[in-house]
């Protein structure tokens, strides 16, 4: 569904992406993992067009995204930090997004119900707690029934109940045919959800493949230890 070839990006002298070749397979959950500052968020934002790559190509469904904006109508994005205009409500926000996406967009507001957000939806966003704002953030990613969902640390700041609801929804939608790219620092969570792992280290892909492969490769029984083993190996090399 998503492919990158030779993706490079530097911020000043810092090389954040140093030739990323990767594939995200349709109908699977792909976890992008790696140590802090490995380039995870940069990679995600580059796929979304928020960051302009210095070099390399990104294909979504076989089509290069360069100069295209329509491909984003099929993507739902949940950023790491949720900050919205202070004086507007969640309903205002949802309405605007619907307006932007046009009449053709199918609207799926099941998550609003599931999170019990209906009561909060009319309050100004600045008065909402961090966790509630994160719920609004999650709702927006799922709102237009996208084929591809890109979630950056989706459960950060959510309480266990909300996080459980979100995870259940991810699993359900994956089975329903959607594709996910997600990052997380919580390995047990990725273990639950992820089918494939892309391990980034210093801007390069250190490993890419099914979760079971990384476990076999590192001779570990769970994902957390397998990733830790990869990181140790990276540090030693």
């Amino acid at each position: 569904m998503v492919e990158t070839h030779g993706l490079h990006k530097s911020f000043g002298r810092l090389r954040v992406l140093d030739g990323i070749d990767m594939r995200v397979v349709r109908n699977r959950v792909t976890a992008v993992v790696g140590p802090n500052a490995a380039g995870k968020t940069t990679l995600i934002k580059t796929i979304l067009g928020l960051i302009r790559a210095d070099d390399g190509t990104i294909l979504v469904d076989g089509k290069a995204i360069e100069g295209d904006d329509a491909y984003r109508s099929r993507i739902g994005y949940m950023p790491q930090i949720a900050r919205f205009p202070d004086n507007l409500s969640a309903t205002d926000l949802f309405d605007m997004l619907k307006d932007l996406r046009g009449a053709t967009a199918r609207v799926d507001d099941r998550l609003i119900e599931a999170f019990g957000l209906s009561g909060e939806a009319s309050k100004p966003l600045r008065t909402l707690s961090g966790g509630t704002r994160q719920k609004v953030n999650a709702v927006m990613a799922f709102l237009f029934d996208p084929d591809l969902l890109i979630l950056d640390e989706p459960t950060a700041g959510l309480d266990p109940v909300a996080s459980g609801i979100l995870k259940a929804r991810i699993a359900e939608d994956r089975d329903g045919g959607k594709t996910f790219i997600l990052t997380s620092h919580i390995m047990s969570e990725l273990e639950e959800l992820a089918d494939d792992v892309i391990f980034l280290n210093e801007g390069r892909v250190a490993f890419a493949g099914p979760v079971d492969d990384i476990k076999t490769l590192t001779r570990q029984t769970n994902l957390e230890r397998a990733i830790a083993a990869m990181m140790m190996r990276g540090a030693a090399a």
Partner: peptide, 16 residues
């Protein structure tokens, strides 16, 4: 400056 994260969100929409 305060709209920065919100602009990111808008950029992730099908918008030029």
């Amino acid at each position: 400056y305060n709209s920065r994260e919100f602009i990111e969100l808008l950029l992730a929409q099908p918008v030029r």
